[in-house]
Design a protein around this nucleic acid. Structure first.
Length: 403
DNA sequence: CCTCCACCGGAACTTACGGAGT
DNA sequence: ACTCCGTAAGTTCCGGTGGAGG
């Protein structure tokens, strides 16, 4: 085949037989309609309405499990309010969206806020106090309301404490021109309890709760997006319902449902099929699982990978942290590595649990103590496969098998 | 009803590193 | 060149704690 033809072939496939617009299924896409979230949209719009008079809205706190539309609704409403503020009243305000899972330090969050105020801050080197005062100065000079949206705030607070939140909610006292409103978003129900009472009262001026979707609502959402994302008639019977039922089982997570649908479409496309079937969704589920594992492994510290390895070669589960630790040390010894302390391993278990790659249940064995029982949520083979892709571990794995 | 195991989990500290300001 | 700062991984120390077994 001529090179020309190869390229042409690939490009031709891009104008796909399956997708009309796959962007609609991406997690960060904000749709024009958000079914079953009218209540929350109304509430949030009411709260933010003072922006039209250049007044500072109350701080808002938003709860809801992952994939319940918190982020989409917030982005949607703030965008619309901003639009109408300009159109109807000729006023403007600034807003910035920050995901604290990615920007999980005080410094990085401040740098992001600074960025939206058009002042540049080096990515390291300054003290947080310095950055904070530069931000405050900028708000003062600009003299407008600044809405700071902190998505997944719990990550920030877990790592750095509520100091930044406290200062952000108090900053209005120091300002004569310009105001700051904070919108905090979290999926951690117990988050508020851990906050300093002062932060709690100021941040929780208003609260909005996002309940999880049920399977029927998920189907509605998927159907609506599928209409935009796929060409007519490519979605076969039962596909939408199947995606919805899987996601409904996992706490009504719409993001999960959309991911499934998108990946199923991509698989169908790769196979050159003329439609998306339930089989494609099943494959998509496996593929997403693999991706998740690879992703977790890439971001884990070295000894976190060793813990995963230990777990994987033990049929994917252990009865206690102690057992896991003994086996982990054994592996380290065989391969000539310094093991970390049990305390550290305990933290690594927590991390893996939070990332969803393992399930760590606390169990009480009375006289025989309290411990965590850890089990992989994915198959050990998937983990081993993903680990062998890790360069430094490859040797390790080989050594272990040939020992 | 109390004890006491095998841990959990918070906090403060260390080490190594790389960037900024002066 | 020197100091100050943040980040990441890990350590040390230690105060809890739920419930089976005495």
């Amino acid at each position: 085949m001529k090179l020309d033809d190869i390229i042409l072939n690939i490009l031709a496939k891009r104008s796909s037989a399956i997708f009309a617009n796959r962007e609609v299924l991406r997690p960060d896409y904000v749709p024009d309609s958000l079914p079953h979230r009218e209540e929350q949209i109304k509430e949030l719009t009411n709260i933010l309405a003072p922006l039209l008079n250049e007044e500072r809205p109350s701080n808002v706190f938003i709860y809801g499990l992952t994939g319940t539309g918190k982020t989409a609704v917030t982005k949607y409403v703030i965008r619309k309010v901003n639009e109408y503020a300009g159109k109807l009243k000729g006023v403007s305000f600034l807003y910035t969206y920050i995901n604290c899972r990615h920007e999980d330090t005080t410094y990085r969050v401040l740098r992001n806020i600074a960025g939206s105020l058009k002042i540049k801050i080096p990515f390291t080197g300054l003290s947080t106090a310095e950055v904070f005062s530069r931000v405050v100065k900028a708000v003062e000079i600009i003299g407008k309301v600044v809405v700071v949206i902190l998505d997944e705030v719990d990550f920030l607070v877990k790592k750095q404490g509520d100091d930044l939140l406290y200062r952000l909610t108090r900053v209005n006292d120091e300002l004569s021109r310009g105001k700051v409103t904070v919108i905090g978003i979290t999926n951690d129900v117990k988050f508020m309890e851990r906050l300093d009472p002062r932060v709690k009262s100021s941040l929780g001026e208003v609260e909005i709760v996002f309940p999880p979707y049920d399977a029927i609502q998920l189907s509605d959402i998927l159907r609506e997006r599928a209409k935009l994302a796929f060409k007519d008639g490519v979605i076969k019977d039962g596909v939408i319902e199947y995606c919805a039922s899987i996601a409904a089982r996992e706490h009504g997570d719409a993001r999960r449902a959309l991911d499934l649908l998108r990946v199923a479409g991509e698989i169908a496309e790769r196979e050159g099929a003329d439609g998306v079937t339930v089989e494609h969704v099943k494959k998509a589920r496996e593929e997403l699982e693999r991706d998740m594992v690879v992703d977790v492994i890439r971001t884990m510290p070295y000894h976190g990978k060793l813990i995963l390895f230990t777990l994987a070669v033990n049929e994917g589960r252990v009865e206690s942290t102690g057992e896991l630790y003994v086996k982990y040390r054994e592996l380290c010894r065989k391969v000539g590595l310094e093991p970390v302390t049990q305390r550290r391993v305990s933290d690594l278990i927590s991390e893996l649990d939070m990332l969803g790659i393992i399930n760590a249940r606390i169990i009480n064995r009375g006289r025989y103590g309290k411990t965590r029982q850890a089990a992989l949520t994915v198959s050990p083979q998937t983990v081993l496969k993903a680990l062998s892709g890790d360069l430094r571990l490859e040797e390790f794995v080989k050594k272990y098998w040939n020992r």
